[in-house]
Amino acid sequence: MANQTQSKQIRIVKASGETELFAESKLRASLKRAGASEGSINSVVHDVTDRLHEGMTTKDIYSRAFSHLRRKDRPTAGRYHLRMALMEFGPSGHPFEKFVGELLKAEGFDVEVARIVQGVCVKHEVDVVATRGDRHVMVECKFHNQPGLRSDVKISLYVQARFEDVERQWKKQPNHGEKFHEVWLVTNTKLTTDATRYAECVGMHALGWSYPSTGSLEQLVERYGLHPVTCLTLLNRMQKQEMMRQGFILCKDVLEHPDALRRVFRNPARAEDVLQEARELIKAI
């Protein structure tokens, strides 16, 4: 068995291919954020460290922890699955755009998703346009469906260039000169240091996994209870895709439209189980 002292000396492989020393504290923190009890945390940590070995991947560690939670506590497992659940919005990025729209609605914005906006030079398909009072926001969503990928500075530069073209056109519109125009870059993964440095320099609001330190993507999900439907552990990949095709983006959508869910599942008992899991996941927030 690998005890805590030994596990600290074991190098693991991240999704990016980089290696780092295994940190039990990180595993405990991620489980705690998911709402796991102290007993569950200790049980998962014991299960993981008991099988920890040199060169083990972070994906394997996650899979072992997730499987353990899923057997014991599905709502907690669903919340622990959040990062991977966001990646399951693929292969297209459109469900993620709708998800970002829901986050902005929770922040009090009026939202339009996938809108064609005229710039001075060309037309742009903007992922989300959001307004609140005198704030007019252009939101670009960068979706990744593989762990280890980051949004780099080239994306920040691209988004800023599009925004400048759109903003120049916006300012030509009647009564628009008084509005405060903003550009947001939202990604479901991490941003590189250069990407965030550039965003801060030009006044772009960047939002991603663990960024910013206060009000990051996962923190907003927890704050507003906007866990994606892909968090539900009773659904397989095909069922999740079908749910999204039917317009389900969030777990709360399942609760608000139970009849539509029952039409997706031919087995009424299975539909009720999914409803119960969604109910428990949201209730536990």
Results as ranks from 00 to 15, higher is better:
D60C: 06
E125H: 05
V137W: 09
E112P: 02
F109W: 06
N42H: 07
R71Y: 11
E140K: 03
R83N: 14
T76W: 08
R83G: 11
F143E: 03
S67T: 12
A77P: 04
F66D: 07
R132L: 14
G55M: 02
K32W: 13
T49G: 02
Y80H: 12
P75C: 04
P91W: 01
H144I: 01
G78T: 07
D47P: 09
M84C: 03
V117T: 01
F66Q: 14
R33S: 13
H94V: 13
M56T: 05
P75T: 06
L86E: 10
D110N: 13
A85N: 13
D73Y: 12
E125P: 00
G90C: 07
H46K: 15
V44Q: 10
L31C: 07
L103P: 06
D134E: 14
T57N: 11
V137N: 07
V128D: 00
E107S: 07
H68I: 01
G90W: 12
L86R: 14
V117N: 00
C121R: 13
Q118K: 00
E97I: 02
R135G: 06
T49L: 14
F89D: 01
F66R: 15
D73T: 08
E112F: 13
Y80Q: 11
G108Q: 06
M56E: 13
G108N: 06
I116Y: 04
T57R: 14
F96T: 03
I61Q: 07
G90I: 07
H136V: 11
V122K: 09
F89H: 05
A77I: 08
S43Y: 03
V113R: 06
P75Q: 05
S92D: 08
A85F: 06
E102G: 01
R79L: 04
V129L: 09
S92T: 12
M56A: 14
D73R: 12
T76R: 10
A130L: 03
S40A: 10
R135Q: 15
D110C: 01
E112S: 14
L86H: 13
T49R: 14
V44G: 07
G108M: 10
H144W: 13
H144L: 06
K32Q: 15
A85T: 09
P91D: 05
L52T: 01
V44H: 08
P91E: 05
V113W: 03
G108R: 10
R33Y: 05
K72Y: 10
R132H: 09
E54C: 01
Y80L: 11
A77L: 09
E125V: 02
H124Y: 14
K123M: 00
R132P: 05
K123A: 00
Q118L: 00
F96S: 03
R33N: 11
V120W: 02
S92R: 13
R51V: 06
H81T: 01
V122Y: 05
T49H: 01
A65H: 04
R79T: 04
V45I: 13
E107A: 13
Y80F: 15
V129T: 02
V113H: 02
F89V: 01
E38G: 12
T58F: 11
G35W: 08
V117C: 01
F66W: 11
R33C: 04
S92V: 04
M56G: 09
R64W: 02
R33K: 15
H53W: 04
A106I: 09
R79I: 03
